[in-house]
Write a protein that binds this DNA or RNA. Structure first.
Length: 822
RNA sequence: GCCGGAGUGGCGGAAUGGCAGACGCACGGGACUUAAAAUCCCGGGGAGCAAGGCUCCGUGUGGGUUCAAAUCCCACCUCCGGCACCA
């Protein structure tokens, strides 16, 4: 028989809401704790990944509340984005109506899950009251020169009909729809995140509370490298080609130069006879998708453009090529090719029969260009390098760089892989970029007092590759705030990651009208003490948010330069070993599970089945087991209720089974407390299960006259309290039935009594040569000598030691005795 | 290729130098029942034997350190994730 979860859950959800149980005031005497889960995109319904995310967050929030913290635990909606617009195109629903309907539905689902949010703080990023401040922040970036428009080759997703940020391109394809990305030359808005590359990298050290995995991913993404820039004068032309290299020690081994096809000098330097071929090559390379140009096995292709430049160190003339393997976006868009010591250059040189010149000799062997099958890319001793010959690579790098610097031919340089963040999107359902274009005044920012630039409701949704706002005259046509003349509005909207880069500040003062947030409230709550979400945001959202926070800190808008002190990245929810997805048809819907088993069982299973960081394999039988456990709790509490309801506190001097029950209770409190602190929810729950099993055994074996009702009451109430963060409804109901008036979620977390943890007698293992050969019972305080003596008195041990020589005895107090014999 | 993480019963997982397999699932036995379900209690790593208690083997593989290794060190294998022509 199943306990009546439906009525219990409804009853308490209603009661909690009426009582405002989860409201938290901004200022009270308790220490603060900000617990935040990544807010969802309102796609329609919650999926199991959401359930996992919010169940984990709720355990943390409830636990910290019971431990005496003022816990800020809010929820909101990352509500702009493409799916809304795609739904509009497909089903003829307006993105706004679609989004708000989804929000209403998902809010109810979260409430049914029993998550304890302060719903007064809810907001959606698509509300003008919120995006007004997104625009305001954009203008702060703009005024500091960190928001700029430039024409550049950008990633274009033909299916989404919009441009994408670098971070949104995964293996050359759109991270949303997996369509291969193409390149387009477009004028687009960027945020200058590269200005913060150094600090974003260095400050990763300030994040010991983040998973190593995420920190490494960010480090790799930012991609710092140290080297030199070197300029090469072009022969018979005033221009110089500047390159970036991490191996200035190989400068004497350069045998040719390569420009990216998009390089500004490529066309200019092309000899008259080569014009046509070069133009054709450049066009071909430009049209190629990022995928085919960069993914693995793409054959290196290039073309001599008929120009030469000079290596100032050797005086050699070097032919200039354009080639598909050089990227315009990195370094200077040009490289010096050293085939002997760079694998890419080596492959290119072999294909086009270019000379290979060895300038680094590895220790022990001698390289011969004629017999080399691959480049030697490691360090060694410089050879054929003029005055630098004989130097070690490491020393040579410094010496060559210094030499270049003295002569003005180059110098030391640090380069990052990180590129500026492209935030323009040619889509309707996003924050309008608050910029005007005036024929007289040029680019003019919308004055702050005119914000928000409101997204018009009546537009036509066609995926044309241009923003639907372009066809909306009442939006486009505006007046220039500088000269009063006619102006047109920017019609691109912002990447939704802009909206989510600052939402965690807004929860502190969600209706603030005088600024994006109330400074004092942000000071009270930030930084986020515990952030919880999927690892898929390891780079995108988390890097952008760090960038925003640093910028805001520099401008005195917040007092911290890192937003998230501790980060927990949860694993995926799998079914049959694969991520749940529509296409695989292996989706388990939270609605179905919750109506069949209730929210408490659903939460309990998802927390019990695996530790939070690890992937979780869904198991219907596992859910069944958790339901059974809660039934078991329900039954035992109901059964002992008459016995314990009026019981006095447990007597101090209990012995035997009653004391044993108290010991188990306190051991469990200790274990559950420590496990929750370490996010080991699965073992915390198993400890509660053991306590419940212990109560059952106690009731099964100890006649009622011999039971101490106080000890039994303590055990029973402890089960309810320890379960409260995991299964908030059933524990609240049991708490009430046990005679309490105040919510269980307002109770202080129980303390264990260390004096009750000790056993009267413990089992000590006796080993001979590390193998268990016997067990002895001893008081826990037995000294090593007593342990050893007792072990040696054991008949079986004596028998096994017969005729052997004891060479050593190792004792671990409270644990074991190991006798080493020869 | 580089960087991370993981590998333990039939399954999810526990143990971070000290009794491997907690807890749960599945399975088996018992009690209750006319019976079944539910429930409650008990039992389950493998192999061997002179079998009811003992021996041996056992945490991906092979070596090492240690009185003692799932745990620490070295080499390798497999799976998962991230990055990947970044000069």
């Amino acid at each position: 028989m199943r306990y009546p979860f439906t009525s219990i859950e409804e009853k308490w959800q209603r009661r909690w809401e009426e009582d405002g149980l989860y409201f938290v005031e901004d200022f009270d005497a308790r220490p603060k704790y900000y617990c935040l889960e990544m807010f969802p995109y309102p796609s329609g319904k919650l999926h199991m990944g959401h359930v996992r995310n919010y169940a984990i967050g709720d355990v943390v929030a409830r636990f910290k509340t019971m431990r005496g913290f003022a816990v800020l635990h809010p929820m909101g909606w990352d509500a702009f984005g493409l799916p809304a617009e795609n739904a509009a195109i497909k089903h003829g629903v307006h993105p706004r109506d679609w989004t708000w309907a989804n929000i209403a539905f998902m809010r109810e689902q979260l409430k049914k899950l029993g998550v304890g949010y302060d719903w007064r703080r809810e907001f959606a990023t698509c509300h003008p009251g919120y995006y007004r401040w997104t625009q305001w922040l954009f203008l702060r970036f703009y005024y500091h020169g960190l928001a700029y428009k430039k024409k550049a080759p950008v990633n274009w997703c033909p299916s989404c009909a919009t441009v994408l940020a670098n971070e949104q391109v995964v293996a050359g394809a759109c991270e949303r729809c997996k369509t291969p990305v193409t390149r387009r030359e477009l004028a687009q808005w960027f945020l200058k995140i590269t200005d913060y590359a150094r600090r974003l990298l260095e400050d990763i050290e300030k994040l010991p509370g983040w998973p190593e995995k995420v920190r490494v991913m960010q480090e790799n993404w930012i991609g710092r490298s140290e080297g030199a820039y070197v300029s090469f004068p072009v022969v018979d032309h005033p221009a110089e080609i500047s390159v970036y290299t991490t191996r200035p020690d190989t400068l004497y081994g350069v045998t040719y130069m390569v420009l990216a096809p998009e390089h500004p000098l490529a066309e200019e330097l092309t000899a008259p006879g080569c014009k046509e071929a070069v133009a054709a090559f450049v066009n071909r390379a430009r049209a190629l998708s990022e995928l085919s140009r960069t993914a693995g096995e793409a054959e290196k292709e290039g073309l001599f453009i008929g120009a030469y430049c000079e290596n100032r160190l050797t005086g050699e003339r070097l032919p200039v090529f354009i080639a598909n393997y050089v990227l315009m976006e990195y370094g200077t868009g040009a490289v010096m090719a050293v085939p002997a010591h760079d694998q890419r250059d080596f492959e290119f040189a072999k294909k086009y029969n270019l000379p290979v010149k060895v300038v680094i000799q590895p220790p022990g062997t001698e390289l011969d260009p004629r017999t080399m099958t691959e480049a030697y890319v490691d360090e060694g001793v410089m050879v054929n390098s003029g005055p630098f010959s004989g130097m070690e690579s490491e020393e040579g790098k410094k010496a060559v760089t210094a030499y270049l610097q003295e002569r003005g031919w180059g110098g030391h340089q640090v380069t990052y892989r990180l590129r500026d963040w492209l935030i323009s999107r040619q889509r309707y359902w996003g924050v309008p970029i608050p910029i005007l274009y005036c024929a007289k005044c040029g680019t003019v920012p919308v004055p702050e007092e005119d914000l928000p630039v409101v997204l018009p409701y009546n537009v036509a949704f066609k995926p044309t590759g241009e923003s639907p706002l372009k066809d909306c005259p009442e939006f486009v046509n505006a007046t220039c705030p500088r000269c009063g003349g006619p102006a047109s509005r920017e019609t691109d909207t912002m990447d939704t990651f802009v909206c989510s880069s600052w939402y965690y500040f807004r929860y502190t003062s969600p209706r603030e009208e005088n600024g994006p947030w109330d400074r004092a409230k942000v000071g009270r709550w930030l930084p986020v003490d515990q952030y919880i979400g999927g690892v898929e945001h390891a780079i995108l959202h988390l890097l952008y948010s760090r960038f925003f926070t640093k910028f805001l800190c520099d401008n005195g808008l917040v007092g911290y330069d890192e937003p998230f002190t501790n980060l927990l990245t949860q694993g995926m929810v799998l079914k049959d070993g694969a991520k749940m997805s529509k296409s695989k048809g292996n989706i388990v819907s939270p609605e179905e599970i919750m109506s069949k088993y209730g929210a408490d069982t659903t939460r309990l299973f998802i927390l019990f089945a695996a530790p939070p960081e690890r992937d979780l394999e869904w198991s219907d039988q596992g859910v069944e087991g958790c339901a059974r456990f809660l039934d078991r709790v329900w039954r035992i509490v109901s059964a002992v209720l008459p016995e314990v309801k009026k019981a006095a506190p447990p007597k101090k001097d209990l012995v035997g089974v009653n004391r044993e029950l108290r010991r188990l209770t306190h051991v469990t409190i200790k274990k559950v407390t420590e496990d929750i602190e370490r996010f080991n929810f699965n073992t915390a729950i198993s400890a509660v299960m053991e306590l419940v099993n212990g109560i059952y055994r106690f009731c099964d074996r100890v006649p009622q006259v011999d039971r101490d009702p106080g000890a039994l009451r303590e055990a029973t109430e402890t089960v309810a309290v320890l379960l409260a963060p995991f299964a908030p409804h059933i524990s609240e109901e049991l708490w009430e039935r046990l005679g309490h008036r105040e919510s269980i979620h307002r109770q202080p977390w129980p303390e264990y009594d260390p004096g009750l943890l000790v056993e009267e007698r413990i089992t000590v293992v006796v080993q001979i040569n590390g193998k268990v050969r016997g067990r002895i019972m001893l008081p826990p305080a037995a000294t090593p000598q007593e342990m050893q003596d007792e072990a040696l008195r054991e008949p079986r041990i004596r028998q096994l030691l017969m005729g052997k020589t004891m060479s050593k005895v190792v004792t671990v107090p409270g644990k074991l005795v190991n006798i080493v014999v020869k």
